[in-house]
Amino acid sequence: MTVSPATDAFLELRDLRIHFPTDDGLVKSVDGLSYRLDRGKTLGIVGESGSGKSVTSLGVLGLHNRRNAQVSGEIWLDGLELVSAPEDVVRGLRGKKMAMIFQDPLSAMHPYYTIGNQIIEAYRIHNKVSKSVARKHAIDMLGRVGIPQPDRRVDDYPHEFSGGMRQRAMIAMALSCDPELLIADEPTTALDVTVQAQILDLMRDLQREFDSALIIITHDLGVVAELSDDILVMYGGKCIEYGSTDDIFYNPEHPYTWGLLGSMPRLDREPTDRLQPIKGTPPSLINVPPGCAFSPRCPYGSRTGGLSTGEVPELTESRGGHKVRCHMPPAERRSIWESDVKPMLETT
């Protein structure tokens, strides 16, 4: 399978599939995902638990469970294809060209090593420098992510840091080798609101400073609204809607995206009596419903004349880079949004 890169994008995924055979059946965590991302841009990946959003990003770094995963498709990073690349090559890129920030900094850092040692280790894998140089670099990084007295805190253990400080240290570690692609998996979910705001500010500033490509994975639409240029909504291992942040928030076209927006209580709107939840529960990735994965929960499924349960809809471009995976024709989706959904959300 030799496909020419033919892309000027910094990161491009083409039809990525990550499947895990289990005793209960094939878990299709990622099932045909494509997107592209340029340097200096932020992509928000939104989805609920089991939507495949975390596995996608682990797959880009080659951190998914390799022993039993079946991976196909292409991941192009700066002209290099990663799915077919040898494990050693991908490992050499990890931490250097692409880095990751995890959800819970307490469990994501080794409890037995000091913060400094963990950053030094990350730096020295890719830079042949002495320990003392690496240590200076670690202190410098800690200072840059806003840790006070970094020369003293560098010798602390993770449990001696507060939650927000730990996440800052995690970011310092991820950025220590100046990566060009940074993936943050629910970076603020484990943090308090006021600390979350600090970390989001920090990530925004650092991205500008480093001019890296940023992928932020979250279930929180508020977080992506603050940070992202583009948003990809995942459901059942597939992208169901992709567009600019304005597209997704002001002109969403997929019933699932509407449902997400209607489910959230919002501080910027007057509270009414009821939220508009999506009925039912997200599908398990083993038993993705036939046809459109969202069909059992979709209030508009009946409008497709049986298509929704019979056929998997294609991800098609609606207009100007805004892509939607839905059987309803674009005009119909837009009219439902304008007449039914939008007014309901605005009174909320």
Binding site: G222, V223, E226, F249, L261, M264
Partner: peptide
């Protein structure tokens, strides 16, 4: 500090 799901914000 609460992130608002509206890019205009």
């Amino acid at each position: 500090a609460v992130p608002i799901p509206d890019p205009a914000n």
